[in-house]
Design a protein around this nucleic acid. Structure first.
Lengths: 203, 203
DNA sequence: ACCTGAACACCGTTCAAGT
DNA sequence: ACCTGAACACCGTTCAAGT
């Protein structure tokens, strides 16, 4: 499993194929299926391995629950940002490793500390983690491939050129659509989510 | 392009390969590269085609801006729910077709009608669309493959079994983690996002 | 100039056969 | 019982060669 982590870190998840990993371990690809059922299970194992490294301040002053949430969610998002294609995989994975359960448990605990009703807390954790994963999967494309950068530029150009007759609201919002830095937008989004989770009652 | 849509609708995006589409059009795969640059561009074109069908109530009473947002976002999410693997593709695509721009413009208009400051509106549209796309990509896996259902069950089992010592908060929230129906959770999430976007000022 | 057959360089997964 | 070579059934993309 360390070999898999190394390949991912050094060459990216794209290059971590069953055949490549098998070659690294001096065997045939069929042998890997003794340890994992399929590619998805390998990705799940990698995620849990990575999650072992994020700091979970399970204890701490109850009053700082909001900062705790933001810190953990930022760490989670930044972690996946470094492995965008893993994030893409995680989105369809429903991870279930011990470190992922620990992460869920900690987030739930912080929302509980904030006095958020149980249902909102449970649904909110889902929303928060989905946002982190999706943000990494989406934004993280930058730099991973040349085409992705090209597409980003193509969209910016289109938005620049979007005629004020056809798209009057885009025209008005033009300057804000790509404004702000990644961290600024992430911290705003986390604020939106947490505020909404705390104040919006379910059903 | 109609052939591509038909294959996707009848057999799923997974089966819509360059080779399969070329065969359908009685030619070799190389010929497709005259019309699209790559697979991503084909997916982008498909998304824009689908978006042509969603109703955009651009006009209407200004006071109903919130309902308008919820209606459009629900339609967008439901649309992608039927094509989960397209949703996965869209997440990394930064779509730029005319119908996608129209969707952005309409959402911006509704947030403007709600008196949301320009920056919050612009960033908020991003957040809303990302949520819709990610939800479809994530939940939509159900039924598309047998393994995905199995993984869902595996997670439910793990959460059921999660010991109260190791994961006390999961233990307490157990009954709520999988509670509610898809539509209930979607409408709650949209409420969270809209409330948060309206009330959380950027920077 | 426009189109495409055939090849390049790969995939994940299965299974019969070996140890 | 455990492991794996070789095969199955595919991919997206490129490019030299034809029309």
């Amino acid at each position: 499993m360390t070999a898999a982590l190394r390949i991912m870190r050094e060459e990216g998840l794209e290059r971590l194929t069953m055949r490549r990993l098998a070659a690294e371990l001096d065997t045939g690809p069929a042998s890997l299926y003794v340890y994992v059922q399929n590619m998805a299970e390998l990705h799940a194992a990698l995620l849990d391995e990575l999650l072992a490294d994020i700091a979970l301040p399970h204890t701490g002053p109850v009053a700082r629950w909001r900062d705790g949430l933001i810190d953990i969610m930022t760490a989670y998002t930044v972690l996946l940002f470094q492995h965008p294609s893993l994030a893409r995989s995680v989105l369809t994975l429903r991870p279930s490793g011990p470190n992922y359960l620990r992460l869920i448990d900690t987030l739930l605990g912080l929302l509980n500390a904030g006095g958020v009703p149980q249902r909102q807390a449970a649904w909110g954790v889902n929303l928060l983690l989905q946002h982190g994963t999706a943000t990494a999967a989406e934004q993280g494309t930058r730099g991973e491939s040349v085409e992705a950068d090209g597409e980003q530029l193509a969209l910016m150009w289109l938005v620049e050129e979007a005629s004020s007759e056809d798209y009057p609201n885009i025209d008005r919002a033009r300057s804000e659509i790509f404004s702000g830095t990644g961290p600024e937008r992430l911290s705003w989004a986390l604020g939106v989510l947490i505020d909404g989770i705390v104040t919006t009652s379910a059903l």
